[in-house]
Design a protein around this nucleic acid. Structure first.
Lengths: 246, 246
DNA sequence: AAAGCAATGTGTAAATTTTACACAAATTAG
DNA sequence: CTAATTTGTGTAAAATTTACACATTGCTTT
């Protein structure tokens, strides 16, 4: 036990009221959530964008976002926005980073919390035309409104890293998928080509894929076997350390 | 170019004024920064805590934090807090995660952005007694005020991961350090024991350590050689992908 | 000054992991 | 039935990781 812990008196004790006054006297900062929603279609990684509703950014694309309500949790807000704007629910969502440059928003001080979302485009048919939503190839995203370009790039980089260390990618695929689809996904996200045999070996060695004893339908060539990811087994066995390497 | 991009008209166009009104009409949410400040001393990883200034948390320890001013960037706010409360500047700072559970703060809705900071305790002598600051062994941190326990644990886990993939650890060491000090640091942060020869081999193989041709002083045994980290070389050569592995 | 102590500094062999690479089998399309 | 396309599989070489022991250095004690 430290000397300080034992002997120090309490200075600067504040009542709740004083803190409440401090909180109330700070300059107003609005909080928003912006969602970078990724999908995978036709072997391309896509991101869902919406036309900016702000005249200043006339016609430019932007992320889906909204102001946070005073009595909802951050994750709740992100789910709400996703649900309201796309009709989607039960999707993968993860907080990535908070962006708060003073002049990032033309309407005043708005700090935004960026979320990354992964959805399966086939499963979730969304009302794109109602909302001026559009799936963009991630390699063709430029000049977004606000600071959304930077937010997008941050989230994309985070995805590239996370997908190598965690089983996120399956959120972008159908529940049943072939190894070729899985490899296409990784290649699309990472922007690389991989050796097919080594890729398969790696995933089989992890031993988290359940062989469904089914094969692909309606493919114009030899159909591949279908698998699903064994989340339960993963949760029990996932590794702790990757080892020092930089 | 997509059909949507070409043909869709612009609906829901808003003027700046409308957005400003929306921003102004949201419920007030205060923003704060909380810093998890790590130091390394006597072969232990330490975290800097302060007595909660709130009566409700009478005597409990908490992270260093403060409300964000309306016209400062987030990183700026974190630097300011660090400087104001500890006298420290030019330290490593990284945003980690934002915490915003509705009832996390007793004084109302306060969303906080957690930062992780790494400082060298020897270089930066801080005015601990003036401020009721205390360095706690990270293995002995319990029952912090607010949701600071969770924030601390999140930041500690992030540090454990990041230190294996990026050369952050050197911020916790003197500019000149021995390999034993470096290994002690990694062992303290990760809570593991490592093989000395393999540890040295690994770092020499990275080839980012500059041999200073100096040796430790005032050690009661054979002194080790001193090194510094070659940031320039690292910046040029750092790797992109770690490979799929989970 | 000598002996003892405590930590540094070093190499190699075995095990594991990663990489590169080619051909036969299944299915559809024509 | 043939051609075209994609699936599915194994092995050898290379690279990396792991386990492990002893001589050297400098300080401390006697």
């Amino acid at each position: 036990m430290s000397a300080i812990l034992d002997t120090a008196g309490l200075k600067n004790v504040k009542t709740l009221k004083i803190i409440q006054d401090e909180v109330a006297s700070t300059q107003r900062i609005a909080l928003s959530v912006d969602c970078v929603i990724f999908g995978f279609d036709e072997n391309k990684l896509k991101v869902l964008l919406i036309r900016s509703d702000l005249k200043k950014y006339n016609g430019r694309w932007s992320l889906l976002g909204d102001l946070i309500d005073g009595n909802e949790d951050l994750d709740e807000a992100a789910y709400r926005i996703l649900k309201q704007r796309t009709g989607l629910k039960d999707v993968y969502l993860e907080q990535v980073q908070t962006f708060g440059a003073v002049n990032r928003h033309p309407a005043g001080r708005v700090v935004t919390i960026a979320y990354c979302s992964l959805i399966n485009i086939q499963h979730h048919k969304l009302r794109i035309f109602d909302n001026e939503l559009h799936w963009h190839d991630v390699n063709n995203v430029t000049d977004l409104a606000f600071d959304h370009q930077k937010i997008f790039e941050t989230c994309y980089q985070r995805l590239q890293k996370r997908i190598q260390e965690h089983p996120l990618g399956f959120n972008l695929l159908p529940k049943k998928f072939s190894l070729r689809e899985l490899q296409n996904l990784y290649e699309a996200i990472l922007g690389t080509k991989m050796d097919r045999r080594n890729f398969r070996k790696k995933f089989f060695a992890m031993d988290f894929l359940i062989d469904l004893d089914e094969i692909e339908q309606d493919v114009p060539h030899r159909p591949g076997k279908l698998y699903k990811f064994n989340y339960d087994k993963y949760e029990k066995k996932k590794k702790k350390w990757s080892g020092i390497d930089f």
